[in-house]
Amino acid sequence: MPGAALPAPALVPPLHLTLASTPDAVRAALVRIGSALAEAGLRPGTCGMVELVIAESLNNIAEHAYRGTGTGEIVLRLVHLSGAIEVTLIDSGQPYPEGALPKAGTFPALTGGRATLPEGGFGWCLIRRLTSKLIYTRKNGRNRLFLRMDLDCLA
């Protein structure tokens, strides 16, 4: 249409993936998601942070929900709305302790010298820092995690 200032930004086509909770399968899914985001024209910095949030969420499922029960299945749905990416992750692993997400509001302290530096505890902090909405529900033996990332806040 003449007079339209900018073309409508391309939306990432909805993604619906089913993957095993193994590090290699998680990596393959992330590479595929990263490609889809880049092809839609999202800025590299935005793609990287979306990929990071999904990576941390998938790693949590693989390492905690399915801990002790071997490999399980994860269903991932990604939708690109105007200005936001929404991701839903469903697994059949163990529920979060006490039925709620870890609070983990602040990043681990880095004081105290080399020997005491934290090697973990960053995952949930990164997820909370980079999402604008985070909803966990447990229903019918399944964990459902909904994550919303506002793209303006990521780059």
Partner: peptide, 19 residues
């Protein structure tokens, strides 16, 4: 390296701590 997650970050910290 164009992507690192918290596991990778932890591995770099661990690489320093084991020196």
């Amino acid at each position: 390296v164009d992507f690192i997650d918290s596991s990778g970050l932890g591995a770099i910290v661990a690489a320093m701590k084991q020196l």
